[in-house]
């Protein structure tokens, strides 16, 4: 199996001297292609920090992080932006979308930054829009969509350029439980049908139950890492 993410003793310490916060401590973990991983744990346990380290948004204090063959911990800022653009899909808790662009344009946005021609990106965006169940809503601005619909657009945008991995940080935190479950089901089916690798940080037990591999963090360390047999 292809390794997509490899963390070797990844550590992130905030602050200096007496007030040091060890957000992530010596985390060693490997994620292979096609996995659907949940990252759970209490608030402040380091989920977001770990996702940011893997996503190249933050640099580890020590340790090695490899994403799709690139040593993220050694990359320059501009190269990190390039890596995020081409290899990583992000879904955040909120404020995912560009308010002045329509749903369809938001989905096209990443492809636009990548320099993909207008015809191709429009075609792909339309097909993904249908896939996430938003046909007919492409012209709406984010403000005209419900919270769940907005998160679907964010998922659509993340998968449309077929990144190596999608990192979702509490994507359901602002949704009611029914909508949250629908979104999770969508991600799960995308993972199953397209072999897209997901890491989802969450502290919602129902979300955790839906994933096959469950990593639990406590105080910046991996507490348990369980993979369910199919």
């Amino acid at each position: 199996m292809t390794t997509i993410v490899h963390c070797n003793a990844a550590t992130k310490t905030y602050g200096q001297d007496e007030v040091e916060v060890h957000a992530v401590q010596a985390v060693t973990v490997e994620v292979t292609k096609g996995e659907f991983v949940s990252l759970s744990g209490p608030s402040g346990s380091g989920k977001t920090t770990l996702l940011n380290l893997i996503g190249g948004l933050d640099r580890p204090t020590s340790g090695e992080i490899t994403v799709d063959g690139s040593r993220v911990d050694q990359m320059k800022k501009a190269d990190l932006a390039e890596l995020r653009l081409h290899k990583i899909g992000f879904v955040f808790q909120a404020y995912n979308l560009i308010p002045v662009l329509s749903a369809l344009e938001n989905i096209e946005f990443i492809m636009q930054l990548q320099g993909i021609s207008p015809d191709i990106r429009r075609k792909q965006a339309l097909s993904i829009l249908n896939e996430v169940g938003l046909e007919g809503l492409g012209d709406r601005r984010p403000a005209e969509l419900s919270g769940g619909q907005q998160q679907r657009v964010a998922v659509a945008r993340a998968i449309v350029s077929e990144p190596a991995i999608i990192l979702a940080d509490e994507p359901t935190a602002n949704l009611d439980s029914a909508t949250a479950e629908e979104l999770l089901n969508l991600m799960e089916s995308l993972n199953r049908n397209k072999q897209i690798t997901f890491i989802v940080a969450t502290h919602d037990q129902r979300v955790i139950d839906l994933t096959r591999r469950r990593i639990r963090m406590v105080d910046g360390r991996i507490d348990t890492d369980v993979t369910e047999a199919d």
Binding site: A81, R84, L85, Y95
Partner: peptide
């Protein structure tokens, strides 16, 4: 600021 942070996280270069 938050929106700009999101755009940069997605890989948009600060120069753009």
């Amino acid at each position: 600021t938050r929106e700009f942070g999101m755009l940069m996280a997605l890989g948009m270069k600060p120069a753009i």
